[in-house]
Simulated scan of single mutants.
Amino acid sequence: MTLRLADPSERDDLGAFTARVVRLDQTAQVTLRASAHRVTAWAATPFDVLATRSVAGVMEPDEVTVDATALLTALAVDRSEEIDLGPGFGLWAGELPPDGGWAPVDDVPAAELEQLTERGLALAREHGSAHGPPSSLLDQTVLTVTGSGARGGVKVPMRALFALSGMGFLGGADTGAGPAGETPVVRVSATGSWMRLDARYGAVVRRRVLSLPLFT
């Protein structure tokens, strides 16, 4: 199983993403999906939110799940053009969102999300425990984004902002959504059951609608 990235900057981008994943969870896994000369990395975070980053490259096979620490080592140490991904773990055990069907809802100033995150971190320090922030804080809706792309608006929970910040995506967030020189923004998009926050260095994704049990 091999990965070939378009140039050293793409390799550094994927390396930075993987390093942030490992920083949050040293036992994490990363799923890589290849399509149309792009390789998209997916990883779970401790906040029950997915993180993702796409880089230019090709891969064989077109989907594989690997140990994040091993991937980081391969990207940082072995600088050959072809990156050996090792044996891998097969396919991703969890659920990934669809590739298409995303509708843009609105752009939110990055500074506004940074302020909300700082308030949440202060509350987490005040009310958290050795097990981390309380679930009531993580599940709290801190922002509802309305627009033409999602009926009823997209409710953004604190856990999504913690994931965005924990992955280092908020710093200098700029999706290029507006003209140069304007306030950096985070783009909010959605499908019928998923929400996505795109910042400059990556995106976080979470289900808007939880799966219903088959039996009650």
Rank of each mutant, 00 (worst) to 15 (best):
L14V: 08
E82N: 07
A43E: 07
R187Q: 09
P104G: 02
G192L: 03
T27H: 12
R151A: 14
G153E: 11
M167D: 07
L3F: 05
L5Q: 08
S54I: 02
V108P: 05
G88W: 07
D7M: 01
G147S: 04
T183R: 12
A74F: 06
D13N: 09
D99E: 14
W102A: 15
L121D: 10
T27V: 05
R4M: 08
Q140M: 07
T216M: 00
T31R: 10
D67Y: 01
G15D: 02
P134R: 00
G147T: 12
P133S: 09
V58Q: 06
L121S: 13
A44S: 15
V66M: 06
A180E: 15
E10L: 00
E95W: 12
Q140F: 06
P8Y: 04
L24R: 13
E60I: 10
R38S: 05
H131M: 03
W92M: 02
D78C: 02
A124D: 11
H37F: 14
W102S: 12
A173C: 07
Q26V: 11
G181W: 15
T45S: 11
D106S: 12
R151Q: 10
E10C: 04
A44N: 05
G171Y: 09
L72R: 15
V154M: 09
A44M: 08
A74G: 08
G172S: 03
I83P: 12
R159D: 07
E114G: 12
E82V: 13
R20N: 14
L170G: 03
F17P: 11
G166L: 01
G149E: 12
A70Q: 13
H127R: 14
R207Q: 13
A203Y: 03
R151M: 14
W194M: 07
L14C: 02
F215S: 10
A34W: 05
T31A: 10
M158E: 03
W92I: 10
T65L: 01
A190F: 07
V55E: 00
D48M: 05
L137R: 09
G172C: 03
P98G: 01
P87M: 00
S136Q: 03
T191A: 11
Q26N: 10
A130I: 10
G15Y: 00
V55F: 01
G181D: 06
R4Y: 01
R125F: 03
V66I: 14
T117K: 01
G153W: 10
P179S: 09
S193E: 13
T216A: 12
V185L: 00
L5S: 04
T141P: 06
D78Q: 07
E60N: 06
V58G: 07
G192D: 15
V49Y: 09
A111D: 12
P179I: 05
V22A: 02
R208W: 02
G100R: 10
Y201Q: 06
R196S: 15
F162Q: 05
V209H: 00
T191K: 07
V156W: 08
H131K: 08
T144E: 14
V205Q: 04
G120E: 13
E95V: 15
E82C: 05
V58P: 02
R23V: 08
V64H: 05
G128E: 06
T2V: 03
T73K: 03
D99C: 02
F215K: 07
P213V: 01
V49K: 04
V205D: 07
R196P: 06
L113Q: 06
D78P: 02
G100T: 14
A177R: 14
V30Q: 04
G90Q: 04
